[in-house]
Design a protein around this nucleic acid. Sequence first.
DNA 1: TATGAATGAGTATTCATTCAT
DNA 2: TATGAATGAATACTCATTCAT
Lengths: 214, 214, 214, 214
Amino acid sequence: MTISAKAERTEAVSELKRSLILAAARRVFESEGLDRASIRAIAREAGYTAGAIYFYFPSKEAIYGAILQELIGRLVESVERAVVDAKKPEQRFQLATLAFFDFFAEDPRDLDFGFYLFGGGMRPHGISREADAALNESLLRSLAPVSEAARQCGFDADEARACAASAFAHAVGLLLLKHTRRIRIFALEPRVLMEMYAQSVAIQFEGRCKTMAV
Amino acid sequence: MTISAKAERTEAVSELKRSLILAAARRVFESEGLDRASIRAIAREAGYTAGAIYFYFPSKEAIYGAILQELIGRLVESVERAVVDAKKPEQRFQLATLAFFDFFAEDPRDLDFGFYLFGGGMRPHGISREADAALNESLLRSLAPVSEAARQCGFDADEARACAASAFAHAVGLLLLKHTRRIRIFALEPRVLMEMYAQSVAIQFEGRCKTMAV
Amino acid sequence: MTISAKAERTEAVSELKRSLILAAARRVFESEGLDRASIRAIAREAGYTAGAIYFYFPSKEAIYGAILQELIGRLVESVERAVVDAKKPEQRFQLATLAFFDFFAEDPRDLDFGFYLFGGGMRPHGISREADAALNESLLRSLAPVSEAARQCGFDADEARACAASAFAHAVGLLLLKHTRRIRIFALEPRVLMEMYAQSVAIQFEGRCKTMAV
Amino acid sequence: MTISAKAERTEAVSELKRSLILAAARRVFESEGLDRASIRAIAREAGYTAGAIYFYFPSKEAIYGAILQELIGRLVESVERAVVDAKKPEQRFQLATLAFFDFFAEDPRDLDFGFYLFGGGMRPHGISREADAALNESLLRSLAPVSEAARQCGFDADEARACAASAFAHAVGLLLLKHTRRIRIFALEPRVLMEMYAQSVAIQFEGRCKTMAV
DNA sequence: TATGAATGAGTATTCATTCAT
DNA sequence: TATGAATGAATACTCATTCAT
């Protein structure tokens, strides 16, 4: 048992160090931007030498991936928390959609990473197939409240997924506009536009729900 | 006349080579991604030495600019052509929105550049302030049919702009999903989703128009 | 004779063009500095294409050489003009030495070239052996008034050459100090130092002359 | 102690490598000239890859700086050592002046750098303002024995500085002649000319000293 | 004689990654 | 586990020179 206990202990220590490096990486990404964040910079921030990082992550891209995983975990949590108290499905839809939007709108750092995530497919960024699958799953999970709300209003599975995909697309599009500041050419607040979208869909939901009740 | 003819000929040849380099650049951007597209890579693809490129373009950014210019020109043209025969405003809205979507959906090469265009502000990609302003203007122009249709249905200027911005955002979001292939997790066709969005907005337009008529 | 006349004419035209290019080169060297003066820049200034320059000069270094030749020609002239009216040898010595100094002190452009000339031997700058010999000869000629003055005071050939070499060295050293602005650390005027040197040597000359007379 | 010993050892090794790179740099500067001495060339000479150099020096200019620093340190030392035993001021003047001359005359490698040093101001070679100021100060220090000797003979501060500046200029001019081999046209030994200059000034010093004594 | 096109070697610096210790 | 050293490829851009036309 001693050996096993020791192994466990070192494992735990290793895991902690890993997370400390990730935290350092996030700090560097935040302050320097994605492009400027070199392995050396991350290592320095974490109090390590560049080479040491490779004991915890096989590559720079792996660090990106790990941060993304954590990011999307927070996203799921954030969306779920937003709908926890709401009962009416159309309300749940609205809250979930806006929570998704707000999550990225509030923190530009996350947004940058989010686009890296969404844009990850454009070119192979070095994210492994499994990691990518995991990201997809998490993404779906973050949108689960949205599609569930649709189901509750009587939409079929296909329609529910369409609702989720559309809400996602709309949010992402507006976030892009906001982030690139091209929203300025419209002289409009992206948050307001997102609310308008959520509400107009919610009204459709309501209509459905009533029909169902009848 | 001989001199002029000769000058004209060499000018034409030079222009052709310029466009061949641009085509090569597009190919490289497509296959390697924007970040990886170095002058050397472009030159290699075009069958040139790196230095030779500078005979045709003063800088790498100038190449970006030339491609973007041409791209957005085609976009504007494409959207305008789509609505040319439509009379009813709600129809014009639908056609314009879908044309915008289709333009990028059809050619992934353009889409990549489109994201560069839309995303140009995320990080400084070296686009000059004026070039950026020009892009914004062109972008607005490409969406003009959309907002004009809204005006014709009785929406005020603010609302019309909101319509354009939302349509733009929705299209961009779906294109992102399509391009990154994350749309797969929804098992839906992005084109269909775009149509649904366009139609649902068009219906709202129709309601307005009737009200107005009354 | 016609053929010969024609050849002569084209020869003259060619020579003229050569000198026009040299003038352009001087202008570029002046405004851009030695490092920045590229063949292309010179060609542009002269209204030519880079390639055309090679019909008149075999290399960039050859242009340097030609400018140096002309420069040193003006130097010789300048020194000779300075002593033309002086009769007494010690006066001739002073005037010649100061003229040498002033020639470079007055025009920083010439000075830059002068150092290029003097420094030409440090590394092979592409000046041909003959060109270099010609430069040496011209240099000696520019110092001829100095050594001749010494001879007239009764110094032997060796001593006369030593006078010339020393005056040359002193002038060059001061010019270097002036040009690099390191003279500032001494808080002294280089021209004044040069005068002091010339005078102190002139006094020695005077002593000799008198001795001789006796 | 082991840790400390190890750290010390690696530190020493690192320092050695640094000095080997500097030596290689000096060799390259000598054989290729300052302009042609690229980081790559230095690295090659030192048996390194270009990138590896940056492990030891932050920039090319830092290499220049390090070499200059060391060079001028040796110069000051050399001049001071030369006068250490001499008592009479005119003798100190002669010894210091000749030591200054000899320092550069003996090692052409140093001379090249010396010209870089003295000539640093001609064109911006990338020397920082502070580095330049430090060089000026060191330069003055190397000439201190010269001006002090003058003061001891009764010259005032201005005159003493003039003596130093003149000696410096004369030495530099002769070194330039020697180095460029243009001294050949005078068929004289530069060392002899330097001795003559030093002696003639020393005689003037002597006169002054006696006057003072009286 | 002159052009326009093209080359190829060159510049300093950065960085992800590897590996002996 | 961690370091320090090292690599090699990459970056945009410049320039003297050559050559077919």
